[in-house]
Simulated scan of single mutants.
Amino acid sequence: MTLERTIASAFDMKDETWQRHASPWSVWTRFSVLPLLILAFWSRIWLGWGSLIPIAMAVGWMWYNPRIFNKPTSTNNWASKAVLGERVWLNRDQIPVPPHHRYLPNILSGVAASGIIFVILGVITLKIWPTFLGIILLNLSKLWFIDRMVWLYEDMKDQVPEYKQWLY
């Protein structure tokens, strides 16, 4: 089982949830999760133990986001195809992806992981520059990753009938 599939299982991502997450509203509002988490953890300097409330709310938003929006009326758009590509990527241990799609997503995930380290360092030390550097690394690598997922989906949709059915 891939790391990504483990994470998707932890978030209880079932078919219905994936369909809702394919809404462009879900994709774009998902980018609010990181700033909200950072702000919630940073709030410990103002709220003390009361910061657990905004932290819980930010984590709740992260879990609830793929579920809150309706299924899109069409998945024939960049944001929806990004989610469909993520599903293809998650399934790569069952249905292999073409060789030219196998490496860069892992590299981009590594860049995102380095961003997480900077964010954690910045939040712990209450320093702006590592926090913002981490946000930039995470968001740029995530945008590039999801753009690659669009490309992956476009390459795979005609090869796997199930994948083609996701496009409407």
Rank of each mutant, 00 (worst) to 15 (best):
P24V: 10
I55R: 02
K81Y: 07
I45M: 02
P72R: 14
P54I: 11
H21L: 03
T75Q: 11
P96C: 11
L126G: 05
G85M: 07
G122S: 06
L167G: 02
V123L: 01
F145M: 06
I135K: 11
F132C: 09
S141N: 03
S74Y: 09
L34R: 05
H21M: 03
Q94D: 13
N76V: 10
A82R: 05
V160G: 10
G110M: 12
T17K: 15
N70G: 14
P54V: 06
I68K: 09
R30L: 05
W78L: 00
N77E: 04
L34A: 05
I128D: 14
T6H: 11
E154Q: 15
L167Q: 05
G85L: 03
W61I: 06
L108H: 04
W63P: 00
W61E: 01
G115Y: 09
E4A: 14
I107M: 08
D12Y: 14
W25Q: 10
I68A: 15
Q165K: 08
W144T: 10
V119N: 06
W89E: 02
W18N: 03
S109T: 08
L137K: 06
W144Q: 03
F118M: 02
L84N: 04
L104S: 05
S109H: 11
P105V: 10
I116C: 10
I107Q: 09
L126H: 15
P96K: 14
S80R: 01
I136W: 09
I45C: 07
P96M: 09
A10H: 08
R87F: 07
M149W: 01
F41R: 13
T125L: 02
L143Y: 15
L36R: 07
S32I: 13
W42P: 00
S80A: 14
W151P: 01
E86K: 10
F31Y: 05
L37T: 06
K142L: 08
A22P: 04
V123A: 11
G115R: 13
A40V: 03
D15I: 06
L36E: 03
Q19H: 10
W25T: 06
D158P: 00
R148D: 08
I116Y: 13
R20V: 05
I107G: 01
I116G: 12
K164N: 02
H101V: 00
V160Q: 13
V33S: 12
W151M: 14
P105K: 06
V83A: 14
P130I: 07
L84I: 02
V83I: 15
N106E: 05
I117P: 00
S32V: 12
A22F: 08
P24Y: 13
I136Q: 01
M13Q: 13
I55V: 15
H21S: 01
W46C: 01
Y153M: 01
R67Y: 11
F69W: 15
W28C: 00
V59L: 12
G122Q: 09
W61L: 12
Y64N: 11
P35M: 03
L140G: 04
V119E: 08
W129F: 01
I45R: 13
N70Q: 15
E154L: 09
W166M: 13
N65P: 00
S51R: 10
L39K: 00
H100C: 10
W78N: 00
I124L: 12
